[in-house]
Design a protein around this nucleic acid. Structure first.
Length: 472
RNA sequence: GGCGCGGUAGCCAAGUGGUAAGGCAGCUGUCUGCAAAACAGCAAUACGGCGGUUCGACUCCGCCCCGCGCCUCCA
């Protein structure tokens, strides 16, 4: 099977064929850093992180760029509120963003272009649109004239007439059409501005993505992504600008959009005030529980956030992580070697599971189905350990496979168990003491040791091969 | 009004024209000094409603009901 991706532009799943054979150029709409990163953002960036990881797994070289909108109304507002420069505000929240994303194991993009660092290119781009007759200047503002671009609406499947009748926006009389959108905004008193041929001002929202994506990835590239809420107007407008400017179609081959995170069946959003920041969520839950939660359903479906859901995802993650810890333990402690046929059989099983994992991911990145394959592997491993039909060689092979596939989903299932020598030695000494106590049938003492370690977050489990310990 | 998404066991969630993955929770058993984990098994006889097409639909078609989103800054 080959990879198929749902393309918003065509409204269908399409076979994925990048513009050049061995590399994929992907642009993801990034954040406007004026507030804390919340779960909704996590959904978007985990989605594209998985897409990137899977493409890399398939052997593509992925060029991944993600913008940072470091100048905009919200930032200006916040800057006034906190008496800090826009730059400071943007920088602060950008760093906060990286922190919470790192915890989620989201790979950093190759480039993070900032709007304010690309102003000359934007001016050139806008001037080009004016020269070609797609844009006009009104009192220092520059607008894109939607009616000049025949394909307008093709991404979001809207007709100009439908929109006009339904528009609830207050109409700016200076614009030729209410749908015309700002490429450039004239500066207001006290706002940051840049000099341009048409006066002082700052960029509109959409222009940066057109300019920066093509600046880094070229006039045409493979994947452009973001949340479903960006389809209109943001991406529709970007598309119009870019294709109008270069005359090349399609600007973007595959448009990919992720669904929302809901709270009590409502979209999590800033304006509703029902958003949960990752920083706060991490106080109660492991970031991997969050990742698991996001991976548990298809990236386009709405998902409902609740503590109970995250807890459940955390439990599921633990089952996965435990399986790997167990593998380590038994690789270390299981005596003897298995027959060659057994190893061959293990490799067959792994091949089969790997193929099914790939089938799932090939179907528009079906992480929920891929995860199911991972859990089947866990069951298989646990059963074979229990029945003692596998030994070291098979266990090593299983471990390699499960870490590999979990890695494609960005799940970190192998973790440092605390390598500080003294702590480790201390724990092992206590375990030894407890084993002695158990031998002497001094269960009271044995339980005390187990309880005291539990208070330190260390769980003991007895097995026929000895006592296993792990951190919670 | 326009466009779009969803309604699968107690909960979450894949999926298929021929009687349904996986996870969480529950119950029983095995193992254990006890536990934990794991394993085995059980239970829900799970596919919004009504019609239609078909030998056969949860899966296709039509209508309806319910929930949600976008159309305005938003991942």
């Amino acid at each position: 099977m080959t990879l198929r991706i749902y393309n918003t532009l065509s409204g269908q799943k399409e076979e994925f064929q990048p513009i050049s054979d061995d590399r994929v150029r992907m642009y993801v709409c990034g954040i406007t850093p004026y507030d804390e990163t919340h779960l909704g953002h996590a959904r978007a960036y985990v989605t594209f992180d998985v897409i990137r990881r899977y493409l890399e797994y398939l052997g593509y070289k992925v060029e991944h760029a993600q913008n940072i909108t470091d100048i905009d109304d919200k930032i200006i507002q916040k800057s006034k509120l906190k008496s800090q420069s826009c730059q400071e505000i943007a920088e602060q929240y950008t760093q906060a963003y990286f922190e919470v994303m790192d915890a989620l194991n989201v790979k950093r993009a190759g480039e993070y272009p900032r709007a304010t660092e690309n102003i000359p290119q934007m001016i050139k781009f806008i001037q080009g649109l004016i020269d070609k007759g797609y844009a006009y200047v009104v009192e220092g503002d520059v607008y894109f004239e939607v009616s000049k671009f025949a394909d307008y609406g093709k991404l979001s499947k809207r007709k100009l007439d439908d929109m006009q009748s339904g528009a609830r926006v207050k109409i700016d009389e200076r614009k030729k059409s209410p749908l015309d959108f700002a490429l450039w905004k004239a500066a207001k008193e006290g706002e940051p501005y840049w000099e341009t041929p048409w006066g002082k001002g700052r960029p509109g929202w959409h222009i940066e993505c057109s300019v920066m994506s093509s600046g880094i990835l070229g006039d045409q590239f493979d994947i452009h992504g973001g949340g479903l809420d960006l389809v209109f107007p943001h991406h529709e407008n970007e598309l119009a600008q870019s294709e109008a400017f270069t005359g090349k179609k399609p600007w973007v081959k595959y448009w990919v959009h992720n669904g929302f995170v809901n709270v009590n069946q409502q979209k999590m959003s800033k304006s509703l005030g029902n958003f949960f920041t990752l920083k706060d969520i991490y106080k109660k839950f492991d970031p991997m529980a969050v990742r698991m939660f996001l991976l548990g359903s298809h990236y386009k479906s709405p998902i409902n956030f609740s503590d109970a859901q995250l807890k459940e995802s955390g439990e599921a993650f633990k089952r996965l992580a435990r399986a790997v810890k167990d593998l380590d333990f038994y690789i270390e402690n299981l005596k003897g070697h298995e027959a060659e046929e057994e190893v061959a059989e293990t490799n067959d099983e792994i091949e089969n599971l790997r193929a099914r994992f790939k089938d799932a991911m090939d179907d528009d990145f079906n992480t929920a189905a891929a995860l199911a394959v991972l859990f089947e592997m866990v069951s298989l491993i646990n059963r074979e350990i229990k029945e003692q039909i596998v030994k070291k060689a098979s266990l090593l092979a299983y471990k390699e496979a499960i870490v590999e596939l979990a890695g494609v989903l960005g799940l970190v299932i192998v973790r440092d168990v605390g390598t500080r020598g003294d702590t480790l030695g201390d724990v092992e000494k206590l375990i030894e003491e407890r084993s002695q106590a158990k031998k002497n049938k001094d269960f009271k003492k044995a339980d005390e040791i187990r309880d005291s370690l539990k208070e330190r977050g260390i769980i003991l489990e007895d097995t026929p091969q000895g006592t296993k310990w792990s951190k919670e």
